[in-house]
């Protein structure tokens, strides 16, 4: 008999004004964010592009890259216009999000840091690449959403806020990704709690030529579990429970098991030719530059 899934704790506000303010400041930084050519986007329609053949102007909108303002047109008309270029090969990226209930675990739920990290990475992609695809396996109509241009950043945040919690497996994620066509560069945000389930999707993406970066916010519990107490633990997805009296010996063994898990995760991603980015999750209300600089730094790398 299946256990009833436990009630998930409420999340703090995902993108409060302080975060949005910090996000706009961060994405404006000159970070060399890598993209990949998107073979699907060869249509001859006007999109924002950094290179290619000039096809016309459009009015400047807040968030557009200042470097693409056509100052000659401003001199002639007194209004700001940006140049629209048509490129033959667009550079895009994809955000693959793990929305499973297990991401709600943690003193500050990991989901908070996953989505904030995704917002930051997505922001860089919107500013610097030609397009961004957000893949949310199991989210129904919201499973695939495409964004383009820096102006779509608020839309991206709204989309991320609205994403539900769904129990989708890594297999669901890779199926959705392959169904949409491999965008070239995939940023996979998840807890990768079961490495064995991640292995096949990683290799499948690699075979399709995708470059995968795994993003894993590290919670304090991932390294330092409780050293005492009588705990009732619950798996958010299966509802399975475990009552454990914790003593120092058990805590030490648990630390060893968690370190073993981290090692397996690193080894798995390395074996699949991917990169796993860990960053220490800040406090929920910490919107300082230092809190997000590790993510920005890894984007550049």
């Amino acid at each position: 008999m299946a256990r009833k899934a436990p009630a998930l704790p409420p999340l703090p506000p995902l993108f409060p004004p302080a975060f949005r303010e910090r996000l706009h400041a961060l994405v404006g930084q000159p970070v060399a964010f890598a993209g990949a050519p998107d073979p699907r986007q060869r249509a001859r329609r006007s999109v924002l592009s950094h290179s290619g053949t000039f096809v016309g102007h459009r009015r400047y909108e807040r968030g557009d890259d200042l470097r693409r303002i056509d100052w000659s047109a401003y001199a002639r008309t007194g209004q700001l216009f940006v140049k629209q270029l048509e490129q033959e090969q667009r550079r895009t990226a994809a955000l693959l999000l793990d929305l499973s209930p297990s991401t709600h675990a943690g003193g500050v739920p990991r989901r908070l840091h996953l989505l904030r990290g995704a917002a930051l990475v997505g922001g860089f992609a919107l500013v610097q690449l030609d397009g961004l695809t957000v893949l949310a396996p199991g989210a129904g109509a919201q499973a695939v959403r495409t964004f383009a241009g820096a102006a779509a950043l608020p839309e991206l945040l709204a989309h991320l806020e609205e994403l539900p919690t769904v129990a989708a497996t890594p297999q669901d994620a890779i199926a959705l990704t392959l169904q949409r066509g491999v965008p070239g560069r995939v940023h996979w945000f998840g807890d990768f709690a079961v490495p064995a389930e991640v292995e096949r999707p990683l290799f499948a993406l690699r075979r399709r030529g995708a470059t995968v970066t795994g993003w894993l916010p590290e919670l304090p519990e991932d390294r330092q579990p409780p050293t005492s107490g009588y705990l009732r633990l619950a798996d958010a997805e299966t509802g399975a429970e475990l009552v454990v009296p914790v003593d120092p010996a058990f805590a030490a063994e648990l630390r060893r098991q968690l370190a073993l898990l981290a090692s397996r995760q690193d080894r798995l991603f390395a074996h699949a030719g991917a990169r796993l980015v860990r960053w220490r999750a800040p406090a929920a209300d910490d919107f300082s530059v230092a809190a997000f600089s590790p993510v920005a730094a890894r984007c550049e790398a």
């Binding site: 436990p6 998930l8 704790p9 209930p101 297990s102 991401t103 709600h104 675990a105 943690g106 990991r110 807890d191 709690a193 079961v194 519990e221 991932d222 009588y230 705990l231 009732r232 633990l233 619950a234 798996d235 958010a236 399975a240 429970e241 475990l242 009552v243 454990v244 010996a249 058990f250 063994e253 648990l254 060893r256 098991q257 968690l258 073993l260 898990l261």
Partner: peptide, 23 residues
């Protein structure tokens, strides 16, 4: 056996079980 009233969510239930088995 008595059970704590509050359950703590964890994605690492397998690691907790492995620690128990190891000990």
């Amino acid at each position: 056996p008595s059970r704590p009233r509050t359950a703590t969510l964890t994605p690492h239930l397998a690691q907790w079980q492995a620690a128990l088995a190891a000990l």
